[in-house]
Simulated scan of single mutants.
Amino acid sequence: MTGPYKLFYKGQSKDFVVFIDDKDAYEKYAHKHDHSIPLTDVVSNFDIYTNQMGQGSTGKLEKASQTDLSVEFGEVKHAEDVLPVILEKGEILNSTGVDHKKWSSTNDSNGFNAR
């Protein structure tokens, strides 16, 4: 079963989101503690996100700053250093719906090549 999926980590000061590519690889890595699985097989990218308000998993997500990560996890040199903690303590909320996005036309009344 492949993703992408949204993984949510409830922090003390801010909440964080990571995107998971493969739910099965995530389950093995995080819950069965099989750290022989490379992180590149688990996460979509090595970025950690937070929303603009700092709480929750919805809203406009932005890349978490080094300061945000250091406040939550202690001294952090690289964002990927805290990925294992987020993966093990976070929870998958749902499929992000990237593959299921609905698109609609913006102006059907003009027809094809209308002038």
Score class of each variant (00 low, 15 high):
Asp99Met: 11
Lys60Tyr: 12
Ser70Gln: 08
Lys60Ala: 13
Gly90Leu: 05
Gly11Ser: 08
Ala114Arg: 07
Ser13Ala: 12
Trp103Lys: 10
Gly74Cys: 06
Gly97Pro: 02
Lys32Gln: 15
Lys63Val: 12
Gly111Thr: 03
Asn107Ile: 03
Lys14Pro: 01
Thr2Ala: 13
Lys89Gln: 15
His33Ala: 14
Asn113Ala: 12
Ile86Gly: 03
His33Tyr: 13
Leu61Glu: 00
Asn94Arg: 13
Glu88Ile: 06
Asp24Trp: 06
Leu7Gly: 00
His78Ser: 11
Gln55Arg: 15
Tyr49Gln: 06
Tyr9Trp: 05
Leu7Asp: 01
Thr40Phe: 08
Phe112Cys: 09
Leu93Arg: 10
Asp47Met: 07
Met1Gly: 13
Leu61Gln: 08
Gly3Pro: 01
Gly3Leu: 00
Leu7Gln: 05
Thr67Gly: 07
Glu80Ile: 14
Lys102Thr: 12
Tyr5Ala: 08
Asn107Asp: 12
Val71Glu: 13
Gln12Ala: 13
Gln52Ile: 14
Val98His: 10
Val76Met: 04
Gly111Leu: 05
Gly56Ser: 07
Thr40Val: 07
Lys10Asn: 03
His78Gln: 09
His100Arg: 15
Phe73Val: 00
Lys14Gln: 15
Ser36Phe: 07
Pro38Leu: 11
Ser95Cys: 08
Leu69His: 02
Thr50Ile: 14
Lys32Ser: 11
Tyr5Met: 09
Asn51Lys: 06
Phe73Asp: 00
Ser36Met: 09
Ala30Asn: 06
Phe73His: 01
Asp21Trp: 10
Glu27Cys: 06
Ala25Leu: 09
Gly111Ala: 02
Val71Gln: 12
Phe8Tyr: 15
Thr40Ser: 15
Ala64Lys: 00
Tyr9Ala: 01
Thr67Ile: 13
Asn51Tyr: 04
Asp81Gln: 11
Phe46Leu: 09
Asp108Ala: 12
Asp22Ser: 11
Lys102Ile: 13
Leu7Lys: 04
Ser95Tyr: 10
Lys23Trp: 07
Asp47His: 07
His35Glu: 15
Lys60Ile: 12
Tyr29Ala: 05
Val71Cys: 06
Val76Asp: 05
Asn107Trp: 09
Lys63Asn: 02
Gln12His: 11
Gly3His: 02
Phe73Leu: 04
Val76His: 01
Phe46Val: 04
Ser65Trp: 03
Asn113Gln: 07
Glu88Phe: 08
Asp108Cys: 04
Leu93His: 00
Ile92Val: 14
Leu61Arg: 06
Asp22Tyr: 05
Lys102Tyr: 08
Phe19Asn: 03
Asp99Asn: 15
His78Trp: 06
Arg115Gly: 11
Ser57Ala: 15
Lys6Arg: 13
